[in-house]
Computed example of a mutant assay.
Amino acid sequence: MAVEKQVGSVWTRPRKGREQPALTREQIVAEAVALLDAEGMDALTMRQLGARLNAGATSLYRHVANRDELIELVVDEVYGEIRVPELADPAAWRTATEECAQSLRAMILRHPWMASTLGQVGLSYLGPNVMRLNDGLVGLFEAGGFPAAETGDAISALMSYVVGMGITEAAWLAMLARSGQTEREFVADLRPAAEEAAKDYPRFRQDDWDDDPVERRERKFRYGLERVLDGLATRRDA
């Protein structure tokens, strides 16, 4: 007789009916997010999380089968922070889409550990917050007048840009945190070596060393986002 195989994901495994009263999955996930924000992905172990919750690792396993499932849960949890505006006027599609893109980027920057996580989160796209986000984006693009046949690809293009830029920034911020320096201090220390490395490559020269580094990151993100939206707008208008 064939044995039915389950896909290894928290979203495909039935949730146990009885939970330990003193500890819930929601508490576990909230504490895991706090641990990740404070110490990063390497610090996330079932033992350390249990210690923060004053519970043994065995207690956690009543709610989460393994660390991979926990990561799926925390990723879905922080995706719940992303705002997708309701769109009443199709003419406001671009503004609403920019708001959503900035909300996604802000979420990633609040949780820099996402940089090392998004490529290895299993079936996180089955989580309720990710599903709500995707449904909201489809509604936003449909209300904005996008052709139904292109909506999925258009959303994918937008999300790929924002996530790609976001995790690059998050990795940079995580490195800054490890250095113990401010962004301006780190850039100032880096400048001599970078200018020396670029001296034989005049086309690679950087002329914005004196700019505020936070404003520089914001400018670069917005430039790319506007170009992506320019391209999507041509398809929408067509």
Rank of each mutant, 00 (worst) to 15 (best):
A22S: 15
L23H: 01
T24V: 10
T24D: 13
T24E: 14
R25M: 09
R25A: 13
R25G: 14
E26W: 00
I28E: 01
V33I: 15
L36N: 04
G40K: 06
G40F: 08
G40T: 08
D42A: 15
D42T: 13
T45W: 04
M46F: 10
Q48D: 15
Q48N: 10
L49N: 08
G50H: 07
L53T: 12
A57P: 15
T58P: 08
H63Y: 02
A65H: 11
N66E: 13
R67I: 06
R67M: 07
R67V: 05
D68L: 08
D68N: 06
E69N: 09
L70S: 02
D76I: 05
V78K: 00
Y79V: 10
G80F: 04
E81P: 01
I82S: 08
E86V: 13
A91Y: 05
W93A: 06
R94G: 08
R94L: 14
A96V: 10
T97H: 03
E99C: 03
L104R: 02
R105D: 11
A106Q: 04
I108N: 02
L109V: 03
P112H: 07
P112F: 02
T117N: 07
G122H: 02
G122V: 05
L123D: 14
L123F: 14
L126Y: 06
P128H: 12
N134A: 15
G136M: 03
G139C: 13
G139H: 15
F141C: 09
E142Q: 15
F146P: 00
A148C: 04
A149T: 07
A149V: 12
A149H: 06
E150N: 12
T151D: 11
T151E: 11
D153N: 13
A154V: 04
S156T: 12
A157E: 12
M159Y: 12
S160H: 10
